[in-house]
């Protein structure tokens, strides 16, 4: 309250309705079009140019690939948590299943890479959905626990039964023909997924998803099967994760149990917190910030996690709404002091 002025209050006004609306008015002038397009183009072009900028630093090109893979998971997490109402810790499951499915088709059946990745995306997504199906009717923490349990279980099963190469993993996957393919396939599909999801949550189906999150009993009372829609939501999120996992396996040319590592479950959540939940673009931005930070922090050795935790805590305490919500509010609204 210290900075508040006597007898005044800070008023926030939305920018003109024409500018903010996504309707036909928004294309009535260049100024308004550029107002809407500027932030979107900044993200799209920025990401597309990034590999070219990073040519002198091949190590950071690899980091960019990891950023994209985490971004798939973070998008899936944000979608499930803030639009379907399921808190999923299954990032590791999605990556692992995607990696093993694509490795199975590529190494054991000899299918080409451009067929393996889509197959892994669809079949992997279906497999994850089937695994998580039994706990879909439940609300609350149960889904989180079960989705956290599956990656641990799968890793131990593969190790104990010595299937799919056991602890060595499956080696000898086809790689991408060059690193440009790796980067641009991941970046472009990540952007497509981002904008497709943003559109989906505002379509009719997205309304049902949000209804399931807000009040599932009311949705049931409208004659809609919430389990089916939750399953569709999980399928979408896990397909995104499986696509990331399949690409990861082809980039490393190897699928192993370290792809069930819990990092894949935890970092997307952190990125969603940093970027702002429920915005979809926020988690992507969160990944763009967090993953490079975690690479930079490698110099700290074991203190890495401590520093990382401090940064996260700072974000939660001082900007708990997330960067994206904060930024879009500043971008879309005027602020000024008025007399009461």
């Amino acid at each position: 309250m210290a900075r508040e002025r006597e007898g005044m209050r800070k008023e926030r006004l939305d920018r003109g309705i024409k500018v903010r609306s996504d309707g036909v008015y928004s294309i009535s002038s260049w100024r308004e079009m550029s107002f809407l397009l500027a932030p979107r183009l900044l993200l799209i072009l920025g990401l597309l140019i990034m590999p070219l900028v990073l040519v002198p630093a091949p190590y950071w090109q690899k980091v960019l690939i990891i950023v994209c893979i985490y971004a798939f998971l973070a998008l899936g997490f944000d979608f499930l948590a803030h639009f379907v109402g399921l808190v999923s810790l299954g990032g590791a499951l999605y990556i692992g299943v995607g990696a093993y499915v694509t490795a199975f088709f590529n190494v054991y059946l000899g299918l080409p890479i451009w067929l393996c990745i889509p197959l892994a995306t669809i079949l992997g997504g279906g497999l994850c959905t089937l695994l998580l199906w039994p706990c879909l009717p439940l609300r609350g923490v149960y889904f989180a626990i079960v989705s956290l349990m599956f990656p641990l279980l799968s890793a131990r099963l593969i190790e104990a039964l010595d299937v799919f190469g056991g602890t060595d993993g499956i080696m000898g996957l086809d790689g991408f023909s060059n690193s440009w393919w790796e980067m641009y396939v991941l970046i472009s599909f990540m952007l497509i997924a981002l904008f497709a999801l943003r559109r989906l949550v505002n379509a009719d189906m997205g309304l049902i998803f949000r209804g399931v999150k807000d009040n599932d009993q009311a949705v049931k009372a409208s004659g809609i099967s919430i389990t089916f829609y939750k399953a569709v939501g999980v399928f979408i999120a896990s397909s995104l994760g499986c696509f990331g996992g399949a690409c990861l396996a082809h980039i490393y040319m190897w699928a192993g149990i370290s792809q069930f590592a819990l990092d894949f479950s935890i970092i997307p959540i952190a990125a969603t917190v940093v970027g702002g939940g429920g915005t979809l673009a926020g988690p992507v931005i969160g990944c763009l910030i967090l993953v490079p930070i975690s690479e930079l922090l490698r110099d700290f050795g074991t203190l890495r996690i401590a520093v990382y935790a401090l940064i996260l805590m700072g974000f939660i305490v001082f900007k708990s709404e997330g960067l994206m919500s904060f930024g879009s509010r500043k971008y879309n609204q005027f602020e000024h002091w008025v007399e009461i």
Partner: peptide
């Protein structure tokens, strides 16, 4: 304020 929601002014 912490969650970045509505700004509530009390005088």
């Amino acid at each position: 304020r912490m969650a970045g929601g509505e700004r509530i002014t009390i005088r």
